[in-house]
């Protein structure tokens, strides 16, 4: 950690490789006649035209909306189910085999099934995203609740702290480091499922657009769509990191003081 040095240097280190790769791509693809690998310059120009136009919103907004609904529903349900399951050995014994089974199902195969129940609208896509994202959140929440400190639990009990305060001031914050681990693991899963579900059956969305470009051999557009997905992934993980830093500041401080002591 300390070997990284001051902030400007850290930023320089973080950006060095991406900049080199982009430069290499730019130079090697410059003037490319290959239909499948157009010059990066063309892709960037297309990117600007395509994704900074009002028309683009009709694809990006639905995608992000589905992702948000599915991901947040998974986060809420994963935590809400994970807490009682983590707290009760009996509940775990009953639920664990079932959960293991559901977790083993690859979420994309649910798309055809869910189309039957939920149609091809936003609900179906949000459900697929939710189904994929819920497992890391749920399993990590269970682990987090199980790992709650026993002495702290006895403290809570001996001061007769009520149910709600117990949940809010003890269980949730105590399990939050692992809950956040689960939420972080769910992030890329959600993006993948967003795109995949839109490729199957959709009339808009980034995944839908990508398939359209591919079918019409609009290669620069397709490449620019892939770049857009990468950027969305990075922005989401930056937002996630900012929230995590805020909520888990105590945890990183605690870890550091334990390492030092």
């Amino acid at each position: 950690m300390s070997a990284l040095g001051p902030l400007p240097r850290r930023i320089a280190v973080a950006l060095a490789l991406p900049v080199t790769l982009i430069a290499a791509w730019w130079i090697t693809s410059a003037g490319s006649e290959n239909f499948y690998f157009p010059p990066l310059q063309t892709i960037v120009q297309t990117f600007g035209k395509l994704w900074f136009s009002p028309h683009a919103l009709s694809d990006v907004v639905p995608s992000l909306w589905r992702f948000s609904v599915g991901y947040l529903a998974a986060a809420f349900l994963g935590i809400a189910i994970g807490i009682p399951v983590g707290a009760s050995r009996n509940l775990r014994n009953v639920l664990e085999p079932v959960l293991e089974f559901f977790r083993a199902i690859p979420p994309p195969v649910l798309v055809p099934v869910l189309i039957l129940f939920a149609g091809i609208g936003n609900e179906m896509k949000a459900l697929v995203i939710m189904f994929g994202c819920i497992w890391p959140v749920l399993l990590n929440t269970v682990a987090g609740v199980r790992a709650l400190d026993e002495v702290l639990a006895e403290t809570v009990r001996s001061y007769r702290i009520g149910r709600f305060a117990r949940l809010w001031h003890f269980t949730l914050p105590g399990a939050s480091p692992l809950i956040f681990t689960g939420l972080r693991q769910a992030l890329p899963i959600g993006i993948i499922l967003m795109v995949v579900s839109e490729m199957f059956a959709a009339s808009d969305g980034i995944g839908f657009a990508l398939v359209q470009y591919q079918r019409t051999f609009a290669l620069p557009e397709m490449w620019s769509g892939i770049i857009l997905l990468g950027i969305i992934g990075i922005v989401l993980s930056l937002i996630f990191r900012a929230i995590e830093t805020r909520l888990l500041g105590w945890y990183h401080g605690l870890r550091q003081s334990q390492r030092a002591g």
């Binding site: 400190d149 002495v151 702290l152 006895e154 403290t155 009990r157 001996s158 001061y159 007769r160 001031h169 003890f170 914050p173 105590g174 939050s176 105590w250 945890y251 605690l254």
Partner: peptide, 22 residues
């Protein structure tokens, strides 16, 4: 039968009895 109302306990493992997030 459960923790009595007007009783406070200071535990042996005091470090672990404080909430690290508060």
């Amino acid at each position: 039968v459960g923790p009595p109302p007007a009783m406070a306990v200071v535990f042996q493992e005091y470090g672990r009895s404080l909430f690290p997030w508060m």
